[in-house]
Design a protein around this nucleic acid. Structure first.
Lengths: 196, 196
DNA sequence: GACAAAACCGAACGGTCGTATTATTTTCTC
DNA sequence: GAGAAAATAATACGACCGTTCGGTTTTGTC
């Protein structure tokens, strides 16, 4: 890996952390450069535009989410255990101290939902793909008869996603110490209603 | 009402609309002034600081939420009908075309969750108060035996809030045309599990 | 209708933003 | 290790930011 690629990776990694706190729009090239001991123009040259930097931040986040949440969960046996593993890794991701400002996707979702453009398009594609994964995992649980055969797997994906959004809200905004407990209760109720 | 108060109200109203799209931080005094046909300094003089303007925006939003969602819902009979009315008005609020960028509270929650200060404090207080209202309405439903006596009303509030967050996400980011259907399904499942 | 108070405006300040240009240093290749 | 290529830096630009200040217009009161 060349020097430039190394630097670029360092920049994106730090930018990702900052973006969880300040949002993608809240990122500023100067602050980022100062934090990393680079010059503003030197950092800028790596991307050519702020939007390209933001896009790479989203890409890096998607990749890390895949590796931290989706892939480990897929090592659990199909069916309910895999669904449960998904929740566990997902909650851990939302709680990961690497992200001082919480989940970048939650932050970006609100930030980008009214701003057409490549950033929004990319974010939407990742979220749709993840929702498809959720539905797929639910469908597998139906196939192994952990879940009832008339379950709507897409609805299950919506329900699960909503729980994590609720968790994020209770934990990060309200600092509710029982947020995780609430999320787990909601999850148990969801699983209960999905069982055969 | 004096001229100044009238103007101030006009400003806050418009600012509230803009803030749903661009966030509280995305508000700019100049853009706001141009839209309203005022001078930047003339508008500024009404508030003395940008933060005070933002605070008044949140205050206005809380008041309107109370009048559009909470108060009408309280006219429904206690118990399940009132819970259902709450959802209806809440969904309508999240969908209200007055807010081009969706619910201001969802937007502010993500924006402020890492920024200590009076804005965050005020938002948290409104959300806690609303969650308390949700729990109270659930408790009433227990008292009239619509809901089981061992229900956890705070958990019910969490669950309901999560559903609306999921709805907001599906609708605004993903443009899922079935978002409302998903939210209603989730709500029905919640009610089902809460019944006696 | 005078006169104080309130409302509003124009201009300017110091800062920060993203970006472009030009130059310098570092890295890589033969 | 020379020389091309890549990486980084210095500087500057125009735009916009929140805020201040001094002056002008409008409003409300006796």
């Amino acid at each position: 890996m060349s020097k430039g690629e190394q630097t670029q990776e360092r920049i994106v990694e730090r930018a990702l952390q900052l973006a969880t706190r300040d949002g993608l729009a809240g990122l500023t090239i100067n602050r980022l450069a100062v934090e990393l001991g680079l010059s503003k123009s030197g950092l800028f040259a790596h991307f050519g535009s702020k939007e390209e930097l933001q896009l790479q931040v989203l890409r890096a986040a998607a990749q890390q989410f895949q590796e931290s949440v989706v892939r480990p969960a897929l090592t659990a046996p199909r069916g309910e255990p895999r669904v449960r593993a998904l929740l566990e890794h997902w909650l851990a991701w939302a709680n990961d101290s690497t992200w001082p400002g919480g989940c970048i996707f939650v932050a970006s979702a609100v930030e980008l939902d009214d701003r057409p453009g490549p950033l929004r398009e990319y974010l939407v594609s990742t979220q749709e793909a993840f929702l498809a994964t959720l539905a797929k995992v639910a469908r597998q649980a139906m196939e192994v008869s952990h879940f009832r055969s008339d379950l709507d797997p897409e609805q299950f994906g919506f329900d699960l996603y909503a729980i994590v959004l609720g968790y994020h809200h209770a934990k990060r905004l309200l600092h509710d110490v029982r947020a995780e407990e609430r999320a787990r209760n909601a999850f148990d109720r969801l699983i209960q209603s999905a069982r055969t």
